[in-house]
Design a protein around this nucleic acid. Structure first.
Length: 528
RNA sequence: GGGUCUAUGGCGCAGCCAGGUAGCGCACCGGACUUUUAAUCCGGUUGUCGAGGGUCCGAAUCCCUCUAGACCCGCCA
């Protein structure tokens, strides 16, 4: 940090935006509006990775604005994408729509105009919930309005050159034979089955024949229709290997992040953009896929998909933004179990930001403050929020399942963690409560009670069940254990196992009063 | 075949992308809260930062080589 100035707020997003601006200046392009883009898939359930692409692009937009430039985020839904696989939990009746563009398939849940919009909406809703602003655009409108027609024309005229280059760059041979354009078959509405072999530049039409195609592991039957598609108005789309380039040129996109799974496509698109369309490709950053805790790719079929909506049941929007903004490099194994530490990490950042935690290293201080600002979308709060350790809330939620909000709040006041009740804390209790309900597997292990333990338990049950409130439950328990020759340590453990399903817990005397001694007596009696 | 990432105390990880005293959680040990569970608080132990080389006043961090593992691409999007 000694020999370099801090750029922007000091995190990777600033560095990226700085590089972008440097490149644009070298290229000499106009900078009155810098567009960044994020592509949204519309065929599968949008998980946190798809959200991340847009959230990070939005971060770059914020950085550019912070540097004094005007910027906007285009959220582009590729809803001409064909349906290849029916996602988990979706009706099998979708089978008949396989290979059709998702925007032409009815919404199986009936709440949106199409299957594609249903999927896109889930992602857009996630973006709205974390506070990301965007301009929404759809593939179907883009093509219908002919916004890409000039680029498609140039690409198709150069298809053989492009086909060779694709083979050279990524070893894919198919575009040496077929045009990188998939018409939607006019007869059966399917994509991919209609293979285009010839382009008529004067008429701007492609000739195609609809035949059987292999999609995934399955054969999708074509209808043998032979037709011609007008690229300026008939439905169809460019292959992904060239489509980004067309869009970048048409929309004047200066930045787009990408996941490593589409690295090859980006490589080809950059070349097409630069060499064929004569539009210098946008600046990029590559990110790793989110993997689940076992190191497997998160996929819908494995059922390990993490959506923003599900995440937000357990953690707040800031925990998502923190996850996505803290870094971009590196493989990331992700699970809901990361939520508690992210929730606490945000509090720590806030403490650093407001000077309550001292950080000596100036570079690190700046970085933490910068990260905090980005997590707040560069609109940080004026004052610190009330901090409650999220793990403590989970522990308390685990104990209080009924009338949770009230009782957990009371405990927090007792512990002196908070001074007053507050709606923000209520919300936190709700999140932590959801977390504890969902993930706290009650390891109802076999509890082996020998005769001595049973006798002690019986004695305790009677004591708790009597109409006379025992003076000091904690001490009573201790005495009963001792008088029955049971190790107090073991006896306490047994009680925790029965009452909480764990081998440890809060101080048990006051705890039993909290949940009601008669109630506990009844629970204990089940084990006698 | 092509490409990317990861490797840091017993376990799980942060720090690396902008070099400046190796950190956190769990576990473990000691103490405080009247005794023995827990919670909480205080204190403590645990590391040749995967291996080797290079740059530098200084490297977990930057560069090169190697080893091991994971993932992605080579259908489609």
């Amino acid at each position: 940090m000694s020999d370099s100035e801090k750029i922007g707020k000091g995190i990777w997003i600033d560095k990226l935006a700085h590089e972008l601006l440097g490149r644009e200046k070298t290229l000499g392009r106009k900078l009155d509006l810098i567009r960044v883009e994020s592509g949204l898939g519309a065929s599968g359930i949008p998980h946190i990775g798809s959200l991340g692409d847009a959230v990070r692009a939005y971060g770059v937009k914020l950085a550019l604005e912070n540097f004094g430039y005007k910027s906007e985020l285009i959220a582009y839904s590729d809803d001409l994408d064909g349906l290849r696989k029916i996602p988990e939990g979706f009706p099998v009746s979708l089978e008949e729509h396989i290979a059709k563009p998702v925007s032409l398939i009815p919404d199986p849940f009936g709440c949106h105009e199409s299957y594609g919009m249903h999927m896109s909406s889930i992602l857009l809703d996630g973006l709205d919930k974390v506070g990301v602003k965007y301009q929404f655009r759809r593939a179907i409108d883009t093509y219908k309005q002919g916004l890409l027609k000039d680029q498609i024309h140039v690409i198709l005229q150069n298809s053989s050159k492009i086909g060779e280059k694709i083979s050279e760059l990524v070893g894919q041979e198919k575009f040496q034979k077929y045009l990188p354009y998939f018409p939607v078959c006019a007869n059966c509405s399917r994509l991919y089955t209609a293979e285009a072999t010839e382009y008529l530049p004067e008429e701007k039409k492609v000739l195609y024949k609809c035949h059987d195609a292999e999609i995934g592991a399955k054969i999708v039957h074509g209808c043998s229709h032979q037709g011609e598609a007008d690229i300026t108005k008939d439905l169809g789309k460019l292959a992904w290997k060239v489509e980004f380039a067309a869009r970048w040129a048409a929309f004047d996109i200066r930045f787009e992040a990408y996941g490593k799974d589409i690295m090859d496509s980006v490589k080809v698109n950059d070349w097409v953009s630069d060499e064929i369309l004569n539009y210098p490709h946008p600046h990029h950053v590559k990110y790793e896929m989110f993997l689940d805790k076992g190191g497997k790719k998160i996929s819908k079929s494995l059922g390990n998909v993490i959506t923003a909506q599900k995440w937000l049941e357990f953690g707040n929007a800031k925990s998502i933004l923190l996850l996505l903004y803290k870094r971009i490099t590196g493989a990331r194994e992700l699970g809901f179990e990361d939520i508690p530490s992210l929730m606490n990490e945000y509090n720590e950042l806030e403490d650093i930001y407001f000077g309550r935690i001292k950080v000596d290293n100036q570079a690190k201080l700046a970085k933490s403050k910068g990260l905090f600002e980005y997590v707040n979308l560069l609109n940080p709060p004026k004052e610190s929020s009330i901090h409650v350790n999220y793990r403590l809330l989970i522990e308390l939620s685990k104990i209080f399942k009924e009338d949770r909000n009230h009782r957990v709040m009371k405990k927090l006041l007792d512990y002196g963690v908070i001074k007053n009740e507050h709606p923000d804390i209520e919300k936190l209790i709700e999140l932590a409560g959801n977390y504890s309900d969902e993930f706290d597997e009650q390891d109802k292990a076999e509890i082996d009670l020998d005769e001595l333990a049973k006798k002690a338990l019986k004695e305790l049950t009677d004591a708790l069940d009597s109409n006379e409130e025992p003076e000091d439950i904690q001490n009573t328990i201790y005495q009963i254990a001792k008088s029955n020759n049971v190790q107090p340590k073991d006896f306490f453990k047994i009680l925790y196992q029965i009452i909480l399903g764990t081998s440890r817990g809060p101080k048990i005397g006051p705890f039993i009063s909290d949940i009601g001694r008669k109630h506990v007596a009844k629970t204990l009696s089940d084990y006698l």
